[in-house]
Write a protein that binds this DNA or RNA. Structure first.
Length: 541
RNA sequence: GGCCUCUUGGUCAAGCGGCUAAGACGCAGCCCUCUCACGGCUGAAUCAGGGGUUCGAUUCCCCUAGAGGCUACCA
């Protein structure tokens, strides 16, 4: 069989050779240990935390080694592309402050010397390599009817693998030149398949940066290299793009481990050097049946990256939470470097967890609380306002119209050595401090309505807001004592029936009148913010 | 069915042949205190099971079980 002649028959218009292509993609000039990695999303929907997690590991690896992090749009499956998905990818990256060194712009330009960074624009490149493979007898044209849809495949799986057939040679692998020519003359489209050199008995070992050496059955299938539309499916595109673009660490989800032997055989057929792999685990949740399952957009709102912005989590909180999953050493580092930027945290590739982590919202909240607790009132206000502008315009208007007052609210119990740590997302502030934004409309249960009224009547009479907290508290005590409340707690505990209550009870009544709630920050601080007039009106209403 | 990966408290995990098996979140209790929060202290809670190897296994090997993934002209 004259493979060269076959290759010419298939691709008469492809004149370039792999050598020509490689001249356009010179090796990167890297210093020792610099990682070149990429984020290679498909524009098929809204960004999932699994993609983001993978991207983040990749990014972090590049970052800590001062390497290159680039973005490649994997749009080889036009059928699955979703409108607006490309812009969304950039939007999320921006929101998190993730900087990409090389990327395709939305307008179709390339930033970086190793483009195009969009796979659908690389058709010619793939064909050059496909033609070369055919010319060397390592690939062949296939005229089989293509399989459509997932349902058929799932159906097929029920019976297909029962026999444990070791090989899957394609019927077209041995077509003669004349037969191929007949198909071509007939105007039939063809796919290109790899002519596997294996028989299904071979074993291979490859190294994974997270999992270590993995031994597996070598590929023995004539896999598709180019679909009949001339576009490659993932494996072939991966081999060519990552080689040309100089990727030296591929970070991808662990679902790719199983297909790595295929990729390795493609690299081998192409004559490429393999690239180091880093297969990261999927982010999981505990399902209804108590089992670990991949976090999913359908059931878990937190699977969508936009969720965190809708809820108003600081981007850093999400990033730090993820970092904490990637490597728990982060937590220790954070404790030692409370004010450092998370980007200064250094970790090795070997430190990445091999276990699929279960997403823990409580932990995220905790991290977020700590981050927000470090902010001053203005920062909290700005963040809250920015969140509101995007997700709650009415509130945003209020915040802008009442800027100084809102900043005071944001400053409640803030800035001291022991700041409050109860706000973990911007969306919760409005409800949390609802009584500061408007008079409370509901009051929690009052245990003794008569005492409550009596106390407030007395306390609000001639109410003046003292300049000092101590003075204020003394005033509360004085009123309480006058009405028969215990101001000495030990005395109260010894004989509770003698008193109407204690100072705490008196404060509870004030708090209830002021906020409608039994729990709130320091009463005096609230009064100071509300002002004497408003405070008095609430007390005597 | 086959192949691959994973398995330390509820969650994230440290551990790399000898420890009372760290720490964080969460939970419970106590202290502080005008309540909540913060902070401090205390506590409950983990090596999936079974075989080996070894003087000694959470750690090394094998088996079993469970969970997850792949088995497309999807990525």
């Amino acid at each position: 069989m004259d493979y060269k002649k076959l290759a010419e028959l298939l691709y008469p218009n492809v004149k370039l050779t792999p050598k020509d292509i490689f001249e356009k993609y010179p090796p990167r000039n890297l210093k020792n240990g610099e990682v070149v990695s990429r984020f290679a999303p498909s524009p098929t929907g809204f960004m999932h935390i699994g993609n983001f997690f993978q991207m983040f590991i990749s990014y972090s690896l590049c970052k800590v080694t001062n390497g290159v992090f680039f973005l490649r749009m994997e749009d080889t499956d036009a059928k699955r592309e979703v409108e607006g998905a490309r812009a969304f990818i950039y939007d999320i990256l921006n929101r998190f402050g993730i900087k990409v060194d090389e990327y395709p712009t939305l307008e179709g330009k390339d930033v970086g010397a190793y483009g195009p960074y969009v796979q659908s624009k690389r058709k010619e490149i793939y064909q050059v390599f496909a033609k070369d493979l055919v010319a060397r007898g390592k690939a062949f044209p296939c005229f089989c009817k293509k399989t459509e849809g997932k349902e058929e495949i799932l159906e097929e799986r029920k019976t297909k693998f029962l026999e444990n057939d070791e090989t899957e040679y394609d019927p077209c692998r041995d077509l003669s030149y004349e037969e191929v020519k007949a198909h071509i003359d007939n105007g039939e489209a063809f796919a290109i398949r790899l002519r596997t050199k294996n028989t299904g008995k071979e074993r291979i070992v490859f190294h994974d940066l997270i999992k270590g050496d993995i031994e597996a059955k070598a590929n023995a299938k004539d896999v598709i290299l180019l679909k009949s539309d001339g576009i490659p499916p993932y494996p072939f595109a991966h081999a060519i793009d990552d080689t040309l673009m100089g990727t030296n660490v591929v970070v991808r989800g662990e679902e790719y481990i199983s297909s790595t032997p295929v990729h390795l055989e493609i690299f081998d057929a192409l004559g490429f050097k393999p690239i180091a792999y880093c297969h990261n685990p999927a982010v999981c949740k505990i399902g209804e049946n108590g089992n670990r399952r991949k976090i999913s957009k359908r059931y878990d709102p937190e699977a969508k990256m936009l969720y965190y912005f809708e809820e108003g989590y600081p981007a850093n909180a999400v990033l730090e939470y993820l970092l904490n999953i990637v490597n728990s050493g982060f937590e220790k580092w954070r404790a030692q470097n409370p004010d450092a930027d998370w980007q200064d945290f250094r970790f090795g590739i070997n430190d990445i967890t091999a276990v699929a982590p279960i997403f823990d919202l409580a932990k995220l909240n905790d991290i977020s609380k700590n981050i927000i607790a470090k902010m001053n009132a203005e920062e909290v206000y700005e963040n809250w306002l920015n969140w509101a502008k995007e997700f709650k315009p009415d509130l945003a208007k209020y915040l802008e119209d009442n800027r100084n007052y809102a900043i005071k609210i944001c400053g409640i119990d803030r800035g001291g050595l022991k700041p409050r740590k109860d706000i973990y997302k911007w969306s919760m502030i409005e409800d949390y401090f609802s009584y500061m934004l408007a008079r409370p409309t509901e009051t929690e249960e009052i245990d003794n309505a008569q005492y409550y009224k009596e106390f407030l009547a007395e306390y609000s009479k001639n109410f003046k807001l003292p300049a000092e907290k101590d003075e204020w508290f003394a005033g509360v005590k004085a009123t309480a004592e006058k009405l028969g409340y215990a101001t000495d707690n030990k005395a109260y505990k010894a004989n509770p029936e003698v008193y109407k209550g204690n100072t705490a009870k008196a404060c509870e009544y004030i708090r209830l009148a002021l906020t409608g709630k039994k729990n709130s920050p320091d009463i005096y601080e609230l009064m100071t913010i509300l002002g004497e007039k408003e405070t008095k009106e609430r007390l005597s209403k």
